[in-house]
Design a protein around this nucleic acid. Sequence first.
DNA 1: TAACTGTACTATTTGTGATGGTACACTTAA
DNA 2: TTAAGTGTACCATCACAAATAGTACAGTTA
Lengths: 119, 119
Amino acid sequence: MIIIDYKDTRPIYEQVVEKFKTLILHGALQADEQMPSVRSLAMELSINPNTIQKAYAELERQGFIYAVKGRGNFVSGDGRLVEERKCECIQKILELAREVLEIGMTKMELIREIEQLQV
Amino acid sequence: MIIIDYKDTRPIYEQVVEKFKTLILHGALQADEQMPSVRSLAMELSINPNTIQKAYAELERQGFIYAVKGRGNFVSGDGRLVEERKCECIQKILELAREVLEIGMTKMELIREIEQLQV
DNA sequence: TAACTGTACTATTTGTGATGGTACACTTAA
DNA sequence: TTAAGTGTACCATCACAAATAGTACAGTTA
């Protein structure tokens, strides 16, 4: 379900956060579905439970999951999260687009690239 | 010429690398133009010369500048760098585009955003 | 009650970024 | 020839974040 890339320079907890955000936004994890427990996921990934705890705390801070003491962590069903992520992506895309246009690419070429994109 | 953003979480040397890459790619720094010396730039930015040295070493590794012992660092005139940067940007853009399309945006909407972009 | 859950600590290790300082080889201009 | 400026290569040190290791406690559930 989650794979850690040790070649990735980003910290482990950040990779875990990203992976779960993607799974939730894509609907692979449904609203109110239970997340793997801190201890079991740590065991599965062969890392420390504290690292998962840190990732879950961050996911909760960002509104992707909610915690219930003694029961577990669960996926939040907040629909606004998708919209927020869309905005983030668009911002980044436009920033990169601005740069690539500044160094000589045309809007036509860029748009052509996107049109040809397979999803 | 170069400004360090201490709110930026990225390391200083990385910011310096990025800034110079942009200046070179945009032609603000011409081929064979002399870079500020390690010591003078460090003085100007109130940081350690070793940090600038690290940034310059990275810029040289990536082919943006070349060093001449005793004389200084100079901008490389390699035209392929612009093409390489374009490819990098496109890759990132397509990656983000793929994500934003997967979570519900349409190609039309995305292309519209780029069309409206002011450069 | 036992086994699971989250949570909160503390201590420690590790790696990277950054600093401070020294030294040496090279180039250039006085 | 000399002095000042260049890059470069070290070393020691500090600061900080990431990650580990371990313990403890409170809540839930079968």
